[in-house]
């Protein structure tokens, strides 16, 4: 089955997580998912929800209305964007009065929300459109020597009423996708806990303590890498790992990889192609092991 989506980048990815975008595009192209650029997309609205629910609804509805005009569904790389677009789509489809109010705003720019497109996160596209079998058959260098841990993050799963994907209390999709690469996915304590990213800027101390505990638990099971599927979670662990090490006198050295980087390696792509050089926590030890394992 061929699939075609408007790619939704959001703000965090172009701001500081290009390695995620680069690796995701490479992997999707090879798996036959066609991505269409959308020059008029804006922020999904989520960052403004705390201060103005109305502003969030308008921003999200504007993106959805633009996609409706193009007649294509959306694929977002960021779970926050995907979750927001899903949630607003559902809310506005069900609440006529609110829909009319928001459409009143969109009308000012010649747009209208109708509720005719759907949004998926990258992981959903991989599991639902591409499918596990096709992913497995694309794996040419199984990462059988690797033992990693996963971090789903919150917005890919919660609130479950709006997201309706996997089980927030015991999520399996990312694990299944990781194991499709040949790597082992380890269980660890508080696996589904928040990374703390949204609290950065309000209280760095609380946010970094949350991330530290996660890293401690990942270290406890000797995971060689932590796999994320969210730009914010990635920033929280990768960008902040050294800071956390200094602040709490810890030593981790755990590389934080985007899932498409892991999959790309298994599909035979080079670390350079997959933007491993953009990572803050050095992954060279892991890469050597992978290359030697494949020989």
């Amino acid at each position: 089955m061929s699939s075609k989506y408007l790619i939704f980048l959001g703000c965090a990815i172009p701001y500081r997580v290009s390695s995620y975008e680069i690796s995701a595009r490479k992997v999707l192209a090879k798996l036959g998912v066609e991505l269409v650029e959308m020059p008029e997309f804006n922020c999904c609205g989520l960052p403004l929800d705390p201060v103005s629910h109305e502003m969030m609804l308008i921003l999200a509805a504007r993106n959805l209305a633009l996609a409706e005009q193009r007649g294509l569904n959306i694929m977002a790389l960021c779970p926050g964007c995907a979750g927001t677009l899903k949630k607003v789509n559902k809310i506005l489809k069900e609440d006529k009065a609110l829909r009319e109010q928001i459409n009143g705003h969109l009308k000012e720019a010649g747009l209208e929300f109708k509720g005719t497109v759907t949004t998926k996160h990258l992981m959903q596209v991989l599991i639902e459109d591409v499918g596990l079998e096709k992913i497995k058959s694309a794996v040419v260098k199984p990462l059988t020597t690797l033992k990693v841990a996963e971090h789903n993050g919150c917005h890919i799963l919660r609130p479950k009423e709006y997201i309706g994907f996997d089980d927030p209390e015991d999520p399996q999709t990312l694990k299944t996708l990781i194991e499709a690469t040949g790597a082992t996915c380890l269980d660890y304590m508080d696996e589904t806990e928040c990374c703390g990213a949204p609290s950065v800027g309000v209280s760095d101390k609380v946010a970094l303590q949350l991330a530290r505990d996660k890293l401690n638990h990942v270290k406890m099971v000797d995971a060689q890498a932590l796999i994320t599927i969210c730009p914010f979670c990635h920033i929280m662990y990768d960008t902040n790992e050294l800071r956390i090490e200094k602040m709490f006198n810890e030593a981790y050295g755990i590389p934080i990889l985007h899932y498409p980087q892991l999959l790309g390696l298994a599909m035979g792509m080079s670390p350079d192609e997959l933007a491993f050089n953009e990572l803050r926590v050095n992954a060279s030890k892991l890469l050597t092991q992978v290359t030697e394992g494949a020989k």
Binding site: P39, L59, R62, H105
Partner: peptide, 15 residues
């Protein structure tokens, strides 16, 4: 994506 700040500002009028 360059976005369209002018169109965004129009839709946000009255917030």
């Amino acid at each position: 994506p360059k976005g369209n700040p002018e169109s965004i500002r129009k839709t946000l009028k009255g917030v």
